[in-house]
Write a protein that binds this DNA or RNA. Structure first.
Lengths: 126, 126
DNA sequence: TTAAAAATGATAATGATTATTATTATCAAT
DNA sequence: ATTGATAATAATAATCATTATCATTTTTAA
């Protein structure tokens, strides 16, 4: 995989944003910094970054797909009202793969744990 | 919500199938039993059944959406090779919502835990 | 049984993602 | 620095899953 300015920028913007944007949202964020960039390039590079492990996909509730740059193990909480994706610390559930292995024999390459509910913002606004 | 033959059949077929089909696959399975049924009806009823809690959505790896009739709490293992969805027993990780609450204060309405890896079939076929 | 409400089938519309294609950027080897 | 091979890009068309529309049919409750 060769270097490209577009891919670097996409990863940078993802790293500087804690919002877990969708491909479309990311396109919006990147465009002011590189107006000529194409939406297809955003999709293509997100797929490449996911493939090489630098970025993770998160499936939203409404079928939307969000992207998260990989730092350390953590989980997610998605608000059923505003659809925002929040981080949940790893210590909520540790070593799930070990438990899986010992109970079922299956070996997991990765694990996704996602909670759904009302975030505190949405609870208060009702 | 009124009764409908189509909805009853959709739920029956889902209950008798451990395969976690997609909407499209379910349409294929239902059509021989009721040739006049429409794909839109399958989608419409799956959404209604999800809304009323009789059926659960599972996000596949490739963006596909699978459906699972709700019986008791359990999790999933998706094969990265054949994309099949397997059930994982609840005792792999119990009471995650309680842990979430005590560590973050967030209250989860539902929890989805999904492992990804090679299923034993695909491991053997290599 | 009959009218109102809900559900259906058929199909068009939508929207997210991927494929295509001509052009441009990258990079190792001259 | 220049070249050639390859990979990446922008723009846009194509694809495919899902949803909306609407005329017709079923269901339900009075």
């Amino acid at each position: 995989m060769n270097y490209s300015k577009q891919r670097e920028l996409i990863l940078d913007v993802l790293r500087q944003n804690p919002v877990h944007p969708t491909a479309d949202k990311l396109y919006e964020l990147v465009r002011p910094l590189m107006p000529s960039i194409s939406l297809a390039t955003v999709y293509r590079n997100l797929n490449l970054l996911v493939e090489c492990g630098a970025v993770r996909k998160i499936s939203g509730l409404d079928g939307s797909v969000h992207y998260d740059h990989c730092v350390e193990k953590h989980y997610h909480f998605i608000c059923t009202c505003c659809n925002k994706v929040y981080d949940v610390p790893y210590n909520v559930a540790q070593d799930l793969e070990l438990k899986l292995k010992s109970l079922t024999g299956l070996e997991a390459q990765s694990t996704e744990l996602t909670f759904k509910g009302l975030c505190s913002d949405c609870q208060n606004s009702n």
